[in-house]
Design a protein around this nucleic acid. Sequence first.
DNA 1: TCAAATAGTTTAATAATTAAACTACATCGC
DNA 2: GCGATGTAGTTTAATTATTAAACTATTTGA
Lengths: 157, 157
Amino acid sequence: MKPKTELIAAIGEATRLFQDSTDAFDDAACAALGINRTDLKCLGMIVEANSISAGELAAGMGLTRGAMTTALDRIERAGYARRVADPDDRRGIRVELTPSCMRSLEAIWGGIRREGEAMMSGYTAAELATVLRFIQEARALQQRDTQRVRKLKLGNT
Amino acid sequence: MKPKTELIAAIGEATRLFQDSTDAFDDAACAALGINRTDLKCLGMIVEANSISAGELAAGMGLTRGAMTTALDRIERAGYARRVADPDDRRGIRVELTPSCMRSLEAIWGGIRREGEAMMSGYTAAELATVLRFIQEARALQQRDTQRVRKLKLGNT
DNA sequence: TCAAATAGTTTAATAATTAAACTACATCGC
DNA sequence: GCGATGTAGTTTAATTATTAAACTATTTGA
């Protein structure tokens, strides 16, 4: 077994490479769908929520409502989502994926999801529990540090 | 211990959340530095390479050389990198980080790197080896699937 | 019931990117 | 050596994405 310091350095590097590879995957997904990264992230949020208002979407995306309007115009024109009237608020709309979009997302992510599950089934439950704990701790740490960085003002000293 | 199917589902979800949190961290880093995501990714590539030509940078970023010129203009104006003449090719330039940029990057990433190392030191060497293997397998799988998705043409059926 | 707030759209201006033309230098075949 | 061809980076014009702010329609609540 390698010493811990080496393993720790290797995990740091591997994590960075994994993030790069996630980025490349998302780029390929955008190219396949013929949309940009903003719109892909938007589709992801709609999938999570199942149905979501334009305002909630804008807030979650970190976009202005104006930008959200044009993004939804693009996405709707591409046939991936639809605005539907909000039954509870006549000013509002809700956004839903089209069936065609769900099929496309499945064509892109279905394979890697199934392969990932197969890969993970090669680990013992104890190992999986370790991996899960690791990922959750890493995320918690990263979220705390994001708070710290948000307060950071760099004077470019 | 939870059953494996539950652990597998939980790891999938945790990975997604970790990616979102990485995205949020990078956004905060951009805000602190006063640059955009393109330029942040660019700084990351320069850090990795230590010194890199404009053309290599453009290729790595997936940008045209024209876009690279304007990105480097922005980054140089912000004081984070410098063009220096390539000693081996009088047409070429090489890009390097400024000392000020290195300090800013350390101010942003130094904390999380140290905290990450401290967090990992709470795991046994065997556990770390499992985590490392997991991340590397996940990346390999994702890279194979990226290839597949690159060939995918979706007719939006 | 009317004033203030909210949801979404529109508009004008700005920022980032591409494609293509351009300049300067390097390299390859003769 | 020398000219043809290729390469590195920049410039320019057009396109795309985003913001800020004004605007319309509706809701909320005093």
